[in-house]
């Protein structure tokens, strides 16, 4: 009669879904919620394109970088938009942590790992789509890359790593702050980070005091490498620096997020 136990439909086996399964369910949830948040979706898809057109047509005429400005600026716009889009993860995580949903998920053994996986993967998918859109529009208005397949793949991989890093970092911020407004404020810090870098104008044209920061902040090697890979320029050690920065941010963020999730969710 050993079949009796299995024959019961809907009987739940202990201890709930396995880790990978939970991660998958959480990814599906975050993607669906992101897709349905129409305002945020439109912002994250349209804003990047508007920003690029703004830079190319409004400022582009006045900025001289030694090459076609749309070619120079595209990597910067890609990184700016990916950073902004990824930073929105903070708002999503804060909303999840402050609602009743988190208690339900925790009593279902959904831990920090599944939570982080869901948000970061959903963010990666969203930003991959918006980056592809930006790239599509860029090609339509005359961006030409001299890169081969390796260059494209390298640039895409690096951009994805950057997206994952900023998403994970934003998840940490989302677990730290108490309100969606505060989380939103933090996304602006990320939005402005690419400005003092080589994203939009060469660093050499900036005031001396800011050059040190602009050269050594994490966004600069990411942009330099993507630019180098897409335009087949030598990028020096920028790709390695970019990988080190992003990898470091991912590792530190994941560790911090897991600790914070335990602490934040365990209080009260």
């Amino acid at each position: 009669m050993s079949e009796l136990g299995v024959a019961l439909p809907g009987r739940v086996s202990e201890p709930g879904a396995c880790g990978a399964r939970r991660g998958r369910v959480m990814i599906a949830r975050c993607l669906r919620l992101g897709w349905r948040n129409t305002d945020a979706l439109i912002t994250s898809l349209v804003l990047p394109i508007v920003l690029m057109l703004l830079f190319v047509y409004l400022f582009g005429g006045a900025i001289h970088t030694g090459s076609a400005y749309k070619t120079y600026v595209l990597p910067g716009v890609l990184v700016l938009c990916a950073g902004f889009g990824s930073a929105l993860t903070a708002v999503r995580v804060t909303e999840d942590m402050s609602g009743g949903v988190i208690d339900r998920l925790r009593t279902m053994n959904v831990g920090g790992t599944a939570m982080l996986t869901g948000h970061v993967v959903a963010s990666a998918v969203r930003n991959a789509v918006s980056s592809a859109l930006v790239l599509g529009v860029a090609c339509a208005i005359g961006f030409r890359s001299g890169a081969g397949l390796t260059g494209w793949l390298g640039a895409a991989g690096l951009l994805m790593l950057f997206i994952v890093a900023i998403s994970a970092l934003s998840a940490v911020i989302g677990m730290l702050v108490r309100s969606a407004e505060a989380a939103n404020g933090c996304t602006f810090a990320v939005l402005f980070l690419p400005y003092p870098s080589s994203a939009f104008v060469p660093i050499a044209t900036m005031p001396t005091w800011i050059r040190g920061f602009a050269r050594n902040q994490p966004v600069t090697p990411v942009i330099e490498s993507i630019r180098g890979l897409l335009l087949s320029h030598p990028a020096g050690n920028a790709p390695w620096l970019a990988i080190a920065w992003c990898g470091g941010i991912v590792v530190a963020s994941v560790a911090a997020a897991l600790v914070l999730f335990q602490r934040r969710a365990g209080e009260g």
Binding site: V12, P15, G99, G100, D103, R104, L105, T107, M108, N109
Partner: peptide, 13 residues
């Protein structure tokens, strides 16, 4: 956790 459920004061849907 696999044997209980919690429906809190704040709706968790």
């Amino acid at each position: 956790r696999s044997r209980i459920s919690l429906t809190g004061q704040y709706t968790a849907v």
